[in-house]
Amino acid sequence: MSMEDYDFLFKIVLIGNAGVGKTCLVRRFTQGLFPPGQGATIGVDFMIKTVEINGEKVKLQIWDTAGQERFRSITQSYYRSANALILTYDITCEESFRCLPEWLREIEQYASNKVITVLVGNKIDLAERREVSQQRAEEFSEAQDMYYLETSAKESDNVEKLFLDLACRLISEARQNTLVNNVSSPLPGEGKSISYLTCCNFN
C-alpha cells in the first residue's frame, strides 16, 4: 500500500483490563467478526482499517495489548506515539471499572499530552448483568476530560461509531494544530509515527 492511498494515518491504542473485550472491539470493527477465533491474534501486531470520511481516506492502525495487560506488564513503548487511546472496561465487571485510575496513571506517565482518550464501557448486550451504571461512568469520564461511549462488540452496537467518531476528532484536531501553529507542520499520524526503519513495510 503506498502513501498516496490515504489522507490520514492514525495510531489508536487499546488499553484496559484483560477480558473486557478489547480484541473483540478491534476484530468487530476491522473484520466484522465476533467472537474472534481464539489464537488467531497470535502474531498480529495491529489491525488496519481504512475508512472514508467526507471523501477523505483515513487509515486507522489499531493496536492491541498483546496480552501484556494480564499481569500489569505493558511496555511503555506501547503508548508512545499513539494519537488516540481507547480505555475499555466491562460494564458487567465492577473491578474493570475500578482499575481505570490505575490505567490513567500509566497514560499520564507514558503517553503524549496531546493524546485523545475515549472511555468505552463494553458488553452492553449483557445489560441485565450491569454493575457499572452509565451515570457513574459519565461522571468519571467528565472529571477526567475523556469522551465516553458504551458499546457491544457482540451486537456491533456503537462499534463503528466509536472508531469513526474518533477518526473525525483526530482529523479535526490535526487540522486545528495546523491552524494554531500557522505553519504547514505535519498532521498527526501522517506516516511519521512509524520509524523510517520499517518504512519498507508501509509502502
Partner: peptide, 9 residues
C-alpha cells in the same frame, strides 16, 4: 524522526 502528535509538540 518525530512522532507527529507526540514528539516535541
Amino acid at each position: 524522526i518525530n512522532t507527529a502528535s507526540g514528539g516535541d509538540k
